[in-house]
């Protein structure tokens, strides 16, 4: 099984809401001070799922990211978890690409790599919370797609994908090659091993540019974006919390019930 995993670097999605800041003018998120960006958590789980498949069936894992120089950090992270190689797709022309352009850039890279059985993406990037890129890659490459996978097995040369649904799951058989997007139900990703960190630090991480990918300039960057951001703001919280005091929690609880009755809640 040769697997390509698409990974994205994003601001830490679990920072305390108080630390989340915007520049309203430029409609951009201000990176929180002292909290480094991370690999999108779903993409880390996609790397984990790829590693489980490799543990069972062998093969090679390649990680791809469209990002700046700093994005090589998440590629290193994936390598230290056990991925075999990583490539950063970086070019000035890629800046401010939307989901369609990003998917196009990744599709071009996947075509260039050529030899693969499975492309994994996260179910969504936890910055803009879209959940588009994986599906668009599948359409671009004309490949079958399963979204929101929590497990994959490969009996008899076909994928058997367990797909999360709101009320349970489905199992879908998919011919290879295919695209699968990965959900958090995969569970905790493994930690990099000491040996993983050493071997990752010795690996070269090639950078591919627009010309390496033979990318059509009309399909990439801000000018190709299908949507325009009109406004970005932090929502105002409308609730005012009334703290019910008491000598003990038990006393506060009793008072709470009385208060709720008075307020007509119960």
């Amino acid at each position: 099984m040769n697997i390509i995993v698409c990974i994205k670097q994003i601001p830490d999605p679990e920072i305390p809401p108080a630390k989340f800041k915007l520049d309203i003018e430029s409609k951009r998120v201000i990176p929180p001070e002292g909290i480094p960006p991370v690999i999108n958590p779903y993409d880390e789980q996609a790397v984990e799922l790829a590693l489980r498949l490799k543990d069972k069936y062998g093969g090679k894992i390649t990680v791809l990211t469209v990002g700046s120089d700093a994005a090589s950090n998440i590629v290193k992270h994936a390598l230290s978890m056990g991925a075999d190689q990583g490539i950063v797709l970086n070019d000035k022309a890629f800046e401010d690409s939307d989901s369609f352009s990003t998917a196009y850039i990744l599709s071009q890279a996947i075509r260039k790599i050529g030899d693969y059985d499975l492309v994994l993406c996260g179910r969504q990037a936890a910055d803009w919370d879209e959940g588009l890129v994986g599906s668009i890659i599948a359409e671009n490459l004309g490949l079958p797609l399963v979204t929101l996978a929590e497990a994959i097995d490969v009996p008899d040369g076909e994928l058997s994908v367990k797909q999360v649904t709101l009320e349970g799951y489905q199992v879908i058989a998919v011919p290879i090659p295919a695209v699968v997007t990965v959900s958090n139900e995969v569970g905790r990703p493994r930690l990099p091993s000491g040996w993983g960190i050493i071997s990752a630090s010795q690996k070269q991480i090639p950078v591919w540019s627009a010309s390496d990918l033979d990318a059509d300039p009309s399909k990439i960057g801000a000018s190709a974006a299908r949507r325009k951001l009109i406004k970005l703001f932090i929502p105002v919280r409308e609730r005012k919390c009334e703290i019910i005091e008491g000598e003990t929690e038990a006393e506060a609880s009793v008072k709470l019930v009385d208060r709720l009755i008075k307020a007509g809640v119960i």
């Binding site: 601001p11 809401p17 989340f20 299908r226 949507r227 325009k228 009109i230 406004k231 970005l232 932090i234």
Partner: peptide, 18 residues
């Protein structure tokens, strides 16, 4: 209008040419 960054922010988009 769509929540982004896990709900930390809200974005308004338009797609006039599509």
């Amino acid at each position: 209008t769509k929540p982004v960054y896990g709900g930390n922010a809200v974005a308004v988009w338009a797609s006039e040419n599509y």
